[in-house]
Design a protein around this nucleic acid. Structure first.
Lengths: 347, 347
DNA sequence: TTGAAAGCGATACCAG
DNA sequence: CTGGTATCGCTTTCAA
C-alpha cells in the first residue's frame, strides 16, 4: 500500500473567513423579497404567479450566493422524503449482484427516487433497523435477509411505506422476494446425478458472510440426492491457491466423482487445482459452478454452471413504487430466483 | 428474467390506522416529562443530571412507542452532520475498487462517520455537485474525477469541510489523490520492451465509462515506447467472446508480438481467444494485464500483470478526518497509485 | 403579486 | 433536577 504522507497541521491558519452557508433567507435579502417568494420562484410553484422581474432577481441572487437548498430541512418540513435506502451488503458479493443493483438504482432514479446506499458496518438486525429508521426513508430495500419482523416493524413505524427484502424466507410485514438458493444446489445436484455421478463434493466457502448463500445451496443439493444412492460430502475451502492445492492433493483419497463448487469463481479455483494435479475433467471429476459468469465460458473445458434468473431491477423498482403509493397494499411474497443448469463441458 | 407478478391493487384498504411516527414530544407526554428531559436522557447529556426514576420512565416510554430519533431534524438543529458522501461510480468498476471502498467505508465507520453512497445517475459535473450539496455532507469523496474546481467550490460553500478526489489530475480546492493510470501503462510498456517485444497491441475497452482509465493507460504505454523502436497499436475491443475471436482471427495479419490488455479480465478474454486460434503464449504473443486479480494466477500460462498499489482505506479515512477537524488545512495533492509489474509466465 | 408567520423534530440555553 | 422556549432552513397557508 502507498502511504499518504502526513501533512503538518497548519495550526489555526486564519482560513479565508469561511462564509457560513447561504440560506433562502440570504437569497431573499439579496433579492429584496421575502423568503416565501424565494421558495415559490425556486420551486416553480404553479399555484402562485410571480412577476418575471422578481423571478429573475431571485434567480440571480441565488446564483450569486451559490445557494443550494437544504434537503434535510426541506423533507423535515414536507414530512416525507423520496429516499430509498439500500443497506450495503456486509460481504463483498459478486459481479452478478453489482449488476442487478446498478439496474435497480437506475430504475428507481427514473421513478424520481433518491437511492442511498448506507453502510451500517457493525450493526445487525434490529440495531441496524433503528439506524436506518433514523434517516426516515420512504422505502428500504434489504439485499439479503438478516432482518426479522421486529426490524420491519421499526422501519414501518418510523414512516417507511415499503420494506422489500431479498431473503431466503418470508418475513412478516415485508414484501419479500424469495431468492431460493436451495434451488441452485438442487439443480446442480439433479444435473450431476443425471450425468451418472454418485459421490458429490460440495464446496463450502470459508469466508464468513457467504454462509447465507452457501448453506441453502448445500441444503438444496442434499435434497437432490435424497432417495438416490448418491452422497454429498462437504468440502470447506478458503478462496486461495494453497487451500485449493491441498484439496486437490487429497482428491483421490476423498473418492469423489463430482464437485459443486458454490459458484464459478470457486469452480475456477478448484478446477485449476485439480487439473494441475493431473485429474481429468470431466472424466475423473465433473465440476459445476453457479452464477454463469463470463469467465466460465473462457475456461477449458468450458465450465458447466447454474444460471441465476434474478428479477429485473425495473420490476423491483415498480414494486417499490407501487408499495409507496398504496400503503394499504398487503405485503407480498414471491419466489423470484430461477435456476437453470447451463451444461457445457466440465460435467 | 423472472417476472414479479403484478399485485391487484387493494383499493383504499383502510390500513390499520397508521399511527403517525412517534416524536420526542410523544415520548415526553407518555413519560410525563418535558421534551428537554427526553433529549437529555436519550443522549446521556453529561452536563445535566437526571434522576434515575425519571430516566427509567423516559426509556420505557421510548421503547413502548418504538421511538427513533429523526436524523434530519437533529442535524438541522446541530448545524452539521457526520455524513461522508461517496457518489457511486457511474460504471461498474472491478473487484479491486470494491475492495478498496469496503475498506474505506469500514475505516470511516470506525471514526464515527456515517458513510452514504449516493446514486446520482443522470447527473454530471456541477449539476451533480449541487445534488450532493443538498445533503450537506461533512465530507465528500469522489471516486473518479469528473468534478471541476467550481463543483468543489459549491460543495465547500454548502458546508463540506473536505472534498477528496481520486482523480487523474489535480483540482483546485480539493484534496486530490492522483491515481496515475499512466504509470500502469508505462510499466507494462517498459516491461514488454525489456523482454524484447517491439510491436505492441493495446486493448482499448469499448465500454463507455472505462475511457477515464483506459486512455491514460494507453498514453502511458505510448510514453514508454517513445524513443525506442517499438510501436503501439490500438485494439478496440468489446467484452465478449465474439469480439475477442475476431481479434484473434486477425492477429497474424496485425503483425504484433505483444498485447497489453487493459486489465486482467480483458487479458483472460484475449489470451483465451489467441490460444484457441493456436497462437503460442508467450512465444508468439506476450500478454500482460493489470489489477493483479486472483484469476490471473489461475490461468495457464500464468498471467503477467501490473499490480496497483491503492492507498490504504485507513489512510484515506484519516485524511478525511484530519481535513474535517482542521478546516484551515490546505488541500493537498499526492501521487498515490503505485504500479508494479508482476512478471509471471505470459510475457 | 407579495409578505408575515406557523410549524416540521430535536437540542441547548436559561430560569425556576 | 426539570421545564419553557428559541432556533436550525424550508414550505405553505392566510392576509394584505
Amino acid at each position: 500500500m502507498v502511504q499518504i504522507p502526513k501533512v503538518p497541521s497548519e495550526s489555526a491558519l486564519p482560513s479565508p473567513l469561511q462564509r457560513s452557508v447561504p440560506t433562502s433567507a440570504d437569497v431573499a435579502r439579496l433579492a429584496g423579497v421575502s423568503r416565501a417568494t424565494v421558495s415559490y420562484v425556486l420551486n416553480n410553484t404553479s399555484a402562485v404567479r410571480i412577476s418575471e422581474p422578481t423571478r429573475r432577481r431571485v434567480h440571480e441572487a441565488a446564483k450569486e450566493l451559490g445557494y443550494v437548498p437544504h434537503a434535510a430541512a426541506r423533507s423535515l418540513r414536507a414530512g416525507h422524503s423520496r429516499m430509498v435506502l439500500m443497506p450495503t451488503p456486509h460481504v463483498a458479493v459478486g459481479g452478478l449482484y453489482s449488476q442487478f443493483f446498478n439496474e435497480l438504482q437506475w430504475a428507481l432514479s427514473r421513478l424520481d427516487y433518491t437511492v442511498v446506499q448506507y453502510g451500517g458496518v457493525g450493526l445487525r438486525g434490529d440495531e441496524a433497523a433503528r439506524a436506518w429508521a433514523e434517516l426516515r426513508p420512504v422505502a428500504v430495500i434489504v439485499p439479503s435477509g438478516g432482518l426479522g419482523p421486529e426490524g420491519v416493524a421499526v422501519l414501518k413505524r418510523s414512516g417507511a411505506r415499503a420494506v422489500v427484502m431479498l431473503s431466503p424466507e418470508a418475513v412478516d410485514g415485508a414484501h419479500v422476494l424469495i431468492l431460493d438458493h436451495g434451488g441452485v444446489g438442487y439443480s446442480a445436484g439433479r444435473h450431476l446425478i443425471e450425468r451418472g455421478r454418485r459421490r458429490i463434493g460440495v464446496v463450502v466457502p470459508q469466508e464468513p458472510g457467504l454462509g447465507i448463500y452457501s448453506r441453502p445451496r448445500l441444503e438444496g443439493i442434499r435434497r437432490a440426492v435424497n432417495g438416490t444412492e448418491a452422497t454429498v460430502t462437504e468440502l470447506p475451502l478458503a478462496y486461495d491457491e494453497q487451500a485449493a492445492g491441498r484439496l486437490a492433493a487429497n482428491w483421490r483419497s476423498l473418492d469423489l466423482d463430482a464437485v459443486f463448487a458454490y459458484n464459478d469463481e470457486y469452480a475456477m479455483l478448484v478446477m485449476r487445482a485439480l487439473q494441475d494435479e493431473g485429474i481429468g475433467i470431466p472424466d475423473e471429476a465433473a465440476v459445476i459452478g453457479a452464477d454463469d459468469l463470463m469467465l466460465g465460458r473462457l475456461l477449458r473445458p468450458r465450465l458447466s454452471t447454474v444460471h441465476l434468473d434474478l428479477p429485473a431491477g425495473r420490476d423491483l423498482a415498480e414494486l417499490v413504487d407501487r408499495a409507496v403509493r398504496e400503503p394499504g397494499l398487503a405485503p407480498t411474497t414471491h419466489d423470484v430466483l430461477g435456476a437453470t443448469v447451463m451444461h457445457r463441458e466440465s460435467s
